[in-house]
Design a protein around this nucleic acid. Sequence first.
RNA 1: GGGGGCGUAGCCCAAUUGGCAGAGGCAGGGCGCUUAAACCGCCUCCAGUGAGGGUUCGAGUCCCUCCGCCCCUACCA
Length: 822
Amino acid sequence: MARPFDVTTVEEKWQARWLDEGNYEVDNDDPRERFYALCMYPYPSGAAHQGHVRNYTFGDLVVRYQTMLGKAVLSPLGFDSFGLPAENAAIKAGSHPRLFTDARMHELKKSLRRLGAVYDWRREVYSHDPEYMRWSQTIFLAFLEAGLAYRAEAPVNWCPGCSTVLANEQVLADGTCERSGDLVERKNLEQWFFKITDYAEELLHDLDGLEWPERVKTMQRNWIGRSEGVEFDLPLAHDPAQALRVFTTRPDTGFGVTYAVVAPEHPLLERLTTDDERANVRALVERATSESELERTASSDAGEGLEMRGAFTGSFVINPFTNEPVPVYVADYVLGTYGTGAIMAVPAEDERDYAFASAFGLPIVRTTQPPDGFEGGAYTGDGEHINSGFLNGLDVVTAKARAAEYLAEHARGIHKVNYRLRDWLVSRQRFWGCPIPIVYCDVCGIVPVPEDQLPVVAPDDVTLEANGQSPLATHEGFRDTTCPVCGLPARRETDTMDTFTDSSWYYLRFADPFTPGRAFDPVQVAKWMPVDQYIGGIEHAILHLMYARFYLKALVDIGLATGLPREPFRRLFTQGMIRLAGSKMSKSKGNLVAPEQYYETVGADGLRLFHLFVGPPADDVDWTDQTDELIEGCARFIDRFYRLAQHDDVNFHDGLDEGDVEVRRAVHRTVAKVTEGLERWSYNTAVAAMMELFNTVSKWARSDRGAERATLDEAIDLMLTLLAPMTPHVTAELWEQRHPGEPGVHLQKWPVADPDLVRASTITMVVQVNGKVRARLEVPPDITMADAATEAMEDAAICAVLAGATPKRIVARPPRLVNIIV
RNA sequence: GGGGGCGUAGCCCAAUUGGCAGAGGCAGGGCGCUUAAACCGCCUCCAGUGAGGGUUCGAGUCCCUCCGCCCCUACCA
């Protein structure tokens, strides 16, 4: 494509200049109003892909726009540089993850610079920087001291492919690893956990005050999974001094409890099991604990084999409502890790219980009257209680309260809130992560590495193998140490931390990486926090965003972030995914369309404009055969604008006429439209408004009569200003051509539309008769309801249509419309 | 199974939040420029809003039902 300027030369010139000028380096004592704009820092996987381009285009627009509004904008960037891909690649290539990562980071940085995005690079943070690791480890130890980090044996998700433990969040619904796709196994291991569950209620509650997409808030609410109910005792029939403790959200259905179920891991199971049933129970427990989640659920999904998933223990417990004994089963559909690990089963009002009862031939007693015509098994809706003694006749809400009171009196019942959220498992049996700064001493136990010995950094000469062991465990020089307390031989922790720990506090480090001797100075950080606009992918809706929220709350509580707000991200925007042939464009799928090729042809500005223009920023983008044509269309607009700004084919006249004033009106209306578009994330319509204005101005200036000079100058300068955050290179270049020696376009004040010009002198009012458009009138914008009706009725065309008929009703919505009903 | 979102022209998308369905772009067609083509400039074609019903003076927009696609989640008692 022949272009009116050399894209590469112009873009490189300005990229270099922005780096030199340092206009986007802001100090913590900057007197301007503050704005913290943050894009999720990337995992360095090599050159930027279209997802990055989209993300950082939006981010850069926000940074430049807010700066032009006169604010001091904090715009930092760093790299999420620990993680599995680098380690796996290093194993394959026989090199070191650091070499690999550093190269990729360099590449990505270059590629982002090529996009024209501006950052305060003095604040750069990357996870594997020993200086960053020092504070990641300090925070771990602070959590430990505060009781927020603990060690426990737990059944964990073990991925044989990645040879590491995974967090629940990293296991897909089908029981496979989100990364490698391998079937996840269950294993019991001693692991480190963070007590995120201590914050479950606050994490849930504080969502209300955040300007986040509802979708993301809903996902977090579901993940936390708060449920309210009653915990109470089911006394053992053969030994009433002992009881099985259960949790239910439906105490009102107590009269319908026909059996109870304990999880295979339940501590009482052994005692509940009678000799006759022992073999069956053992077989079930064996199967349940060894099978993967996928195998466990496969049978129920197929609707068969449910009888394989449970067994009678031989024992009975007393239903406190009926005082009748009911059998106790063990079944794998009850989870050992939720509630009390045991349930009362009400087949008539719970679908899972219904299916189980049906398979085992257990009685089903309705306690809630289903509506007429209800078909199917369990009825979980509201209704009048039946077969329920003192609860008969009540609705569910009332019956719940009454039943809870009863249980409190007769079965040690207490009101209880349970959460689905589990504590955060942070241990990883991998090399390329931040080492957990702990020493195990036979005498002193778990000993934190003293602060003056931090950071604990992994040695370079480690043999990396995917053999199921922490690579550091095989390195004697690292593993074997002495106890910091007693000096006797001791062993280091050889696991590393989940990389989500790194991204849980990087936004704090960005705000103050300057204060020596600490992770950050809360007083400095408080000048910026919370992040005013956080931008990233929807894929982080649960994990990263939940962990980061937890970290900040915890850091405030333990005194490392005193005075800071308890929520890190005030406003969140999640951009749409780029998809190719229906699936997400990603490196792992190998379906990338590299941005590099477009830098050469349409330039960064062209590609940026495309991402802004293609559709609403929150929507997914389908990359199709036509996409290249759309991108070229964006470049074409830039070229057209460039020529107009250079007065190609433009004619001039002296003295302001009505046509010139109309253009001024259009310009100022566009200022208002674009500003509104940028404020409400409607970048596509903002770009469209620019194109529309361009068409208007171009036709006017290139007509035979031409343009009035000052009007054209104002139009072009304002257009340059409005486009400056979108296509920074070409606007900077043109501004410099037009205003040599003056401050650049990005240092200009964001324009404010002249309200007198925005207001139209007249507006077209539609007159309808019975909803059909019969006339259009030019009326003043502030026409009154009465005048609008009168003018409509007096219009000749309307009179003709009415033909003397008297209107039944006149609906006037001045100045837009009058509808006459006859 | 549960939760959420989306369906407007051949394609990507607008529509003052209940008021004339079309702002912008892509593709297509025509004309001009050109020896010619590309580039460039101008002009132009194209849907009644997935289907059906309801509320309303008025529905793309609100409410039901259905169809199609997408995302999240999944034994949490």
